[in-house]
């Protein structure tokens, strides 16, 4: 099990690094997908098959497809000159400091909590569902409200009146048809 874990972890690290360093946007996204897949393998090894499956279905399967969709639409392929100008040393000093704090925190935690074998028990989908709808029901409800608000907002932004440009009225008169029956 440990070997598989190390392989998956190494894959995740390498592919995330390549995703950040890559110049071609689509190739970077492909590496990010690979990283998500290897993280899902880690979840599976740690005994959370449900989370592993959801990681693939939602992150790798849906969110990343939307990313690729947007990149295809915007047609951003290779690196551009403007991006080079954006990446001044000034820009990455603050993230570097924040990252260092996080790293120190992480090393400290590893030092203090080392050699504690985490209990390896497999958590089945049913247990996840039960705890989501009993212990954490408030969190689920709040997340649901947030998503609903997001949907309503997206609908409001995307809503527009139906425009029909008629083939024979060449003056491009826009006739508003309130309720177009199919």
């Amino acid at each position: 099990m440990n070997t598989i874990f190390y392989i998956a972890a190494a894959l995740a690290l390498i592919s995330t690094g390549l995703a950040i360093a890559g110049k071609n946007a689509i190739h970077s996204l492909l590496f990010l997908i690979l990283s998500l897949l290897s993280i899902s393998v880690i979840f599976y090894i740690l005994g959370a098959p449900f989370i592993a499956a959801l990681e693939i279905i939602i992150y790798a399967g849906a969110v990343m497809v939307l990313f690729i969709f947007v990149i295809m639409m915007l047609n951003v392929g290779m690196e551009r000159e403007t991006e080079k100008r954006w990446l001044k040393p000034r820009m990455w000093v603050v993230p570097l400091i924040l990252g260092t704090i996080l790293l120190i925190d992480f090393i400290f935690m590893l030092k203090t909590m080392a050699h504690e074998e985490t209990a390896r028990q497999i958590i089945l989908p049913k247990q996840v569902g039960v705890s989501l709808f009993t212990t954490y029901v408030l969190g689920v409800e709040i997340a649901g409200m947030l998503l609903l608000a997001g949907i309503v907002g997206a609908y409001h932004l995307g809503r527009q009146k139906k425009k029909v440009i008629h083939r024979f009225l060449k003056k491009e008169e826009i006739i508003e048809v309130p309720n177009l029956k199919k």
Binding site: P49, L54, I56, V65, L124
Partner: peptide, 20 residues
């Protein structure tokens, strides 16, 4: 134990072949 989810995950990964 997660066969149905495994199928759904794989079918959502299958989208990439066509898109890419």
């Amino acid at each position: 134990n997660i066969a149905v989810l495994f199928f759904l995950g794989n079918s959502s990964l299958g989208v990439y072949s066509i898109v890419l």
